[in-house]
Design a protein around this nucleic acid. Structure first.
Lengths: 108, 108
DNA sequence: AAACTAAGTTACGGAAAGTAATTATGTGAC
DNA sequence: GTCACATAATTACTTTCCGTAACTTAGTTT
């Protein structure tokens, strides 16, 4: 039934990027290291989902989590090299959106 | 609460590409015109979701739907110029996946 | 008419996401 | 010590989205 099928690595990348909020989290971290609550307020994601996404991205070694033993304790998130290597994808989406996206159009 | 916030056009593009199957449908159509059932079997999406995605993409003028009055009637889907302009995004995802994706890694 | 094919829809169950309240941990004030 | 406070993260509940499979529609062949 299925055709030659799609490259598994490509499919994995797609399924990662198709998860809601993943791309925006990476986009935000491209601007630099951020704390949990900063990401939350800057992109408008709920704590529950952000917590899941950051764990996924940490497991995939796209995001690094660092505990800073200050007063009070601070937890910082930043991109790894693998994470920063996604920048071209995001910049292309940015460029495309500026050229082609109509702010008024709606999805179903 | 929310920071200066993210560019609305960029957010729209992200929310489109974050929908499950959208990117793979476009990927498939980059290979050329396809019929409904061809897309279905090549990427493994259900008829229900594919139908919704194609309607969305048609409304956004990313995909063109053409009825060929043959025997029996054939319905062909292809990319518009706007659709083809997304190719760099998809090629970057492809490149990134080849360099960085480990086939064994799991999401949560 | 019965059977076939392709495009698309419907009904139903399960998974993912939104919201808000709650917990955990560590601080300083008293 | 304990009370109030802040941040990271989890839990409970609801809603929305997705997967599966059966069904519908329309035209064709037998």
């Amino acid at each position: 039934m299925a055709q030659p099928t799609i490259c598994p690595k490509f499919e994995k990348a797609i399924s990662l990027l198709s998860q809601k909020w993943t791309t925006l989290v990476i986009y935000q971290l491209l601007l630099g290291t951020h704390r949990f609550s900063e990401i939350q307020s800057s992109i408008g994601v709920s704590g529950k989902v952000l917590s899941n996404r950051l764990k996924d991205l940490e497991n995939l070694e796209i995001v690094k989590r660092e505990v800073i033993p200050e007063t009070p304790v601070i937890i910082e998130y930043s991109l790894t090299e693998k994470g920063r290597s996604m920048e071209p994808i995001i910049r292309d989406i940015e460029k495309w959106s500026q050229l082609w996206v109509n702010e008024d159009a709606e999805l179903s």
